[in-house]
């Protein structure tokens, strides 16, 4: 608790440029703040109550479906089919997880997804950073034309079919590399990185050049260490995108089960149900019912697929907040 108070005092003084406040002053401020709250009129209270209700509802709507999925995943498979499980499993069991891990495609998909996330993030980060570095050099001759060249790619693209045929022609389809190479550069990420690099003081580069440093040295030794926060942002964006991709696996590697991804496998599991509910009046429901994966197994698969990202994102909050602010308004 004491830490909190000191922090507040420090922050306050920092933002107001004065000296650190004494405990006495702090107390006065707090008393005044409390008084202000007390002085709130009826409308003010109504607002606070409505606002709280809204935000609590919002949180519940966001969190409940995810929590419910976790609850189902830990429930006994047969029992779960009856439904009616809300916040806690009725009959606890981890059997569904062992079932999921025994699905051949799922294990392969997990390996490929981890691999593509790591490799894809690394290559993409290096490539984007290098390109952003080149574009952000203020004295680079072709700076604006190179920048335009990449901005255009954000808005114009060939479309699904020409791209697919190109990959086929380049023999990228039915390989692992189709996950890594074509999506390596994203103009949006380049612009985020560029904006950040441009905001760094020019003097850094100039003094390094005075010491005889070339551009590569400047990139590695001067710019990159300062860009760590924005690198983290871009790495997060790319990693999430890689982890969540499924369409490329379906389109380019449908025939190659050894290059399947986690999300695509999950889709196959979930799809057996989605398709069925639409054609519920059909005669083939009995046949379909046999193929339908039990709800607990589907939930377990979903949980396995989302857990890594859910565990990581809260710690990277400040990074993506800065990244979005830079990219959203200035990009």
């Amino acid at each position: 608790m004491k830490m909190k108070k000191d922090d507040f005092a420090l922050n306050y003084t920092n933002s107001h440029g004065g000296e650190k406040m004494s405990d006495e002053e702090l107390k006065t401020i707090k008393r005044m703040a409390r008084k202000n709250t007390r002085r709130m009129d009826g409308w003010g209270w109504a607002f606070v109550i409505c606002n709280t209700i809204f935000l609590v509802l919002f949180t519940i709507v966001t969190l409940y479906p995810v929590w419910n999925t976790v609850a189902y995943s830990f429930n006994d498979g047969l029992d779960a089919i009856r439904g009616g499980i809300y916040l806690w499993p009725r009959k606890f069991s981890v059997e569904s997880y062992s079932k999921v891990l025994n699905i051949q495609g799922f294990v392969v998909g997990a390996k490929i997804t981890v691999l593509r996330t790591i490799l894809g993030t690394l290559t993409s980060l290096v490539a984007n950073a290098l390109l952003a570095f080149v574009i952000s050099r203020k004295r680079f001759l072709f700076r604006s034309s190179l920048s335009l060249f990449w901005v255009v790619t954000m808005y114009v693209n060939g479309g699904l079919i020409p791209v697919m045929l190109l990959y086929r022609y380049l023999h990228l389809t039915n390989t692992f590399w189709v996950y890594i190479i074509p999506g390596m550069i994203s103009a949006f990420n380049v612009m985020v990185l560029r904006t950040y690099m441009e905001d760094l003081p020019d003097e850094l580069e100039e003094s390094a050049q005075l010491d005889g440093a070339g551009y590569i040295t400047i990139f590695i030794k001067i710019i990159s260490p300062l860009c760590k926060p924005v690198y983290a942002t871009v790495a997060l964006f790319v990693a999430v995108w890689q982890w969540n991709s499924w369409f490329d696996a379906m389109l380019y590697n449908r025939m190659k089960t050894e290059y399947t991804t986690l999300q695509y496998e999950l889709m196959k599991l979930l799809n057996s149900v989605t398709q069925q509910s639409g054609s519920a009046n059909g005669n083939n429901t009995t046949a379909a019912a046999k193929q339908v994966t039990p709800v607990s197994v589907r939930s377990a698969a979903t949980v396995v697929t989302m857990v890594p990202i859910i565990c990581i994102y809260p710690f990277l909050q400040r990074y993506f907040v800065t990244g979005l602010t830079i990219g959203g308004v200035k990009g």
Partner: peptide
């Protein structure tokens, strides 16, 4: 807390989101 929770669905893939919507 509310803000951190509000980001969560963005990090889930559409596969998961659609699965959740469908189940709900």
């Amino acid at each position: 807390l509310v803000q951190t929770i509000s980001y969560l669905p963005h990090f889930l893939s559409w596969i998961i989101v659609c699965g959740i919507v469908h189940d709900s």
